[in-house]
């Protein structure tokens, strides 16, 4: 009897699942809060001030100083700038930002990259070759010569 009751309850719950789900998952939206105009205006004012270079000047220096201590590059680009209207990057920060090598003349460009890895590679190659030769010679000397046995008379 209990088994039949259990099967019946299971079948009932399966059949009623969709309607039950609808019942339990319905969300009653709370009434909208009244918009706090003062808070919104304050938020917009802070955002504008943060994007303004004249406001950020001291913060930029502070940020560059912290980054220089931490050894991380700092980007100082400013958008929507009311004072300059262009990308502003202090010289100390600009010198640390990795840029592509100069391949064409441009006023204010850095000197072309003339560093070459060839001397280092050549030296490393010669060193590795000499090391390898040394290992080979040493291992040959370490092998004992075969001992010849005299035949008994």
């Amino acid at each position: 009897m209990n088994r039949r009751l259990l099967i019946a309850l299971s079948a009932l719950s399966l059949l009623a699942a969709s309607s039950a789900e609808a019942q339990f998952t319905t969300v009653v939206a709370p009434p909208k809060k009244a918009v706090d105009q003062a808070a919104v205006q304050e938020q917009q004012r802070v955002a504008r001030a943060e994007a303004d270079s004249s406001h950020r000047a001291t913060m930029q220096e502070m940020s560059a100083w912290v980054d220089s201590v931490a050894g991380a590059p700092a980007l100082g680009s400013v958008v929507a700038d009311s004072a300059a209207g262009a990308v502003v990057m202090d010289s100390a920060t600009a010198s640390r930002v990795s840029e592509p090598a100069t391949t064409r003349f441009q006023d204010g460009a850095r000197a072309p990259n003339t560093a070459s890895p060839l001397p280092l590679l050549l030296l490393a190659g010669i060193g590795a070759t000499l090391l390898g030769l040394g290992v080979i010679l040493t291992s040959r000397r370490a092998v004992p010569a075969p001992v010849r046995r005299r035949r008994a008379p």
């Binding site: 060839l118 590679l121 190659g125 010669i126 590795a128 070759t129 030769l133």
Partner: peptide, 16 residues
């Protein structure tokens, strides 16, 4: 040693 010869050869070829 093979690596050394390869490195030195490559660098020498670049100089040449």
């Amino acid at each position: 040693m093979v690596v050394g010869v390869a490195l030195a050869g490559w660098a020498g070829a670049a100089y040449a």
